[in-house]
Design a protein around this nucleic acid. Structure first.
Length: 230
DNA sequence: ACCCAGGTGGCCC
DNA sequence: GGGCCACATGGG
C-alpha cells in the first residue's frame, strides 16, 4: 500500500492531468470572493452568479457597500442564491463586523496566524468550517485545506478500506468528520497555498461531473485509483 | 414531481 | 455527541 503522501499526490496529479488548472476562486476581487463564499453555502454556483451579478449591478459588491446596505435590499438582490433572508443578514453582519471592529482592514486580518484568523471567523454566525477555510485560503492566501461534500464523497470512495480520514464515534462507528479530513490533507501534503487552492478546485470540478449518484467511475479521471461504489 | 447544490445553526434527547 | 430540521432558489 502506498503512503498517504504519495496517494494524495497521485490523486492530485490524475485530476490535474484531466482538468488542468482551475484558476480559482471564481471572483475578481477579494471582497467578491468573501461574498461568494457565503452565498455558495449549499447552493449551486450558477445561482450564486446571478446573485453576484445583481449585487454588482446595484454597486453592492464590496465589503464596505454590503456593510452599509439595507438587509431587505440585500435579500432582494441575492434571492437567486437561495436562503436569501438568512444570507442577507449574515452578509451584513459579517462585513459590518469587520467595518466596525477593524475598519475593514482585511490585509491585517489575514496577516494573523492561520489558527487565530480561523477561530475568529468561526466565531461569527453563519461562518462554519468550510466557509472559513474558503475565505482563509482563497481570500487570505493562508495555508488551510477546504473540505466539502465532494471531498467527503470522492475520498470515501477512493479508500473506503482505509478510512484514514474518518473518525470513530463513541459507539465505534465510522463517521465523516470535517476536521479529521482537513488534518489528513494538511498532514500529508506539503504546506503550499497554491497546491491547496488547486486541489480543492479540482475536487469540485471532478465532483460536479463524477462520483455523484453514479455507482462507479466509468471514464473517470481517477480510474485505477478509485475503489468503486460507495 | 421529485432530487440535488462548493453549509450552518438550533433544538432535542 | 448524534439525529433531525429549517432555510429557498433554479436546473436536471
Amino acid at each position: 500500500m502506498i503512503s498517504d503522501k504519495k496517494f494524495l499526490m497521485q490523486v492530485y496529479d490524475a485530476l490535474f492531468k484531466r482538468y488542468g488548472p482551475r484558476h480559482w476562486w471564481p471572483g475578481d476581487t477579494r471582497d467578491e470572493i468573501l461574498i461568494g463564499a457565503i452565498l455558495t453555502q449549499n447552493t449551486a454556483w450558477t445561482n450564486v452568479e446571478k446573485a453576484i451579478a445583481n449585487l454588482k449591478g446595484a454597486g453592492l459588491l464590496t465589503a464596505k457597500a454590503v456593510a452599509g446596505a439595507d438587509v431587505g435590499t440585500l435579500a432582494r438582490l441575492i434571492r437567486p442564491a437561495g436562503y436569501f433572508n438568512q444570507k442577507a443578514v449574515r452578509l451584513k453582519e459579517f462585513f459590518g463586523h469587520f467595518e466596525a471592529q477593524r475598519n475593514g482592514d482585511f490585509d491585517a486580518f489575514f496577516s494573523q496566524p492561520l489558527d487565530v484568523a480561523r477561530a475568529r471567523l468561526l466565531a461569527l454566525c453563519g461562518i462554519g468550517p468550510e466557509t472559513a477555510d474558503s475565505m482563509l485560503l482563497y481570500a487570505g492566501n493562508l495555508p488551510t485545506f477546504v473540505i466539502d461534500a465532494y471531498t467527503f464523497r470522492i475520498f470515501k470512495r477512493l479508500r473506503l478500506d482505509k478510512r484514514a480520514y474518518q473518525r470513530r464515534t463513541p459507539k465505534g462507528l465510522w463517521k465523516d468528520d470535517y476536521e479529521t479530513f482537513r488534518q489528513y490533507f494538511l498532514k500529508n501534503l506539503p504546506e503550499d497555498v497554491r497546491l491547496y487552492n488547486e486541489y480543492h478546485a479540482l475536487l469540485v470540478e471532478h465532483g460536479k461531473t463524477h462520483c455523484r449518484s453514479k455507482p462507479a467511475c466509468e471514464g473517470c479521471a481517477l480510474a485505477g485509483i478509485c475503489g468503486g461504489p460507495l
